[in-house]
Design a protein around this nucleic acid. Structure first.
Lengths: 136, 136
DNA sequence: CTAGATGCAAAAAGTTTGCAATGCA
DNA sequence: TGCATTGCAAACTTTTTGCATCTAG
């Protein structure tokens, strides 16, 4: 049994070709995905657009994926377990989103919090930049 | 001359009622705004929806406002000066929000961006902490 | 007076829904 | 078999555009 099938069964979702493919795409992707990513992949040419939307919704309801803030035209999603603490950077030009594996901001943030007499508990960060494609 | 008028002239944008109102709304708002915020405000009942969109676009092109990542259905914008160096910390217990006058995260963020070959342009940050009242 | 802004209506673009047919359990 | 899922078309929502009119400079 594949990892996708196993995950779906755990969450008591029925295992269909479309659903399995959507989940597998998330499992193998290193960055958040939006509908356009699915439409651009030939695996999904055989599935209807509404099935992609409906399956994304199902996976989100099941807590397998989650939507993440994005500045672009499409809602982006990623696996809930996709790393523990991580942030994203989006391209200000083409809106592409990428996961960052590193953080290391806590030390400075603790100091910032201290300036207003707060004890730092957590943080959320969105970086904006220009990707290599858009720079050249 | 109002602050909005001054800003528009600086950027060589013509000063119309609609444009002035849109910018004033941003200037007095303490949070990012989306089209729905405009449609919900009675000042904007007299303006056409497309004028709101077109003016938001103009202000963005002029570098007065910028779009920010958002998880909702509507694109959100904020004044450029708010996004760059005006962060907030909120108390996880009493929800009080405090402005931070310091940042100093750019250096590390530049490094983070570099790990995925992005050139850092901006960032948005929300810190969460415990205020002194809630710690005692 | 003229370039740019506006209102209105129509079109795009992105997403959701109803329904009949199909597939999973 | 029975309920969930799918495809398809149509509806909906959010945003953009064309064009005639109006307004700021």
């Amino acid at each position: 049994m594949t990892k996708a099938e196993k995950l779906l069964k755990e969450k008591k979702l029925s295992v269909t070709e479309a659903r399995k493919s959507v989940l597998e795409f998330f499992l193998k992707s290193k960055k958040p995905l939006n509908v356009l990513d699915f439409k651009g992949d030939k695996t999904f040419e055989s599935f209807n657009e509404s099935s992609i939307y409906r399956n994304i919704t199902k996976l989100e309801e099941a807590g397998i994926i989650q939507s993440i803030p994005s500045a672009g035209d499409y809602q982006s999603y990623e696996l809930v377990n996709h790393g523990h603490h991580h942030h994203h950077i989006s391209c200000s030009n083409c809106k592409k989103i990428q996961c960052l594996k590193v953080c290391g901001l806590e030390k400075r943030m603790k100091e910032m919090a201290k300036t207003v007499d707060f004890l730092l508990v957590g943080h959320s960060v969105e970086l904006v930049g220009l990707c290599s494609d858009c720079r050249s």
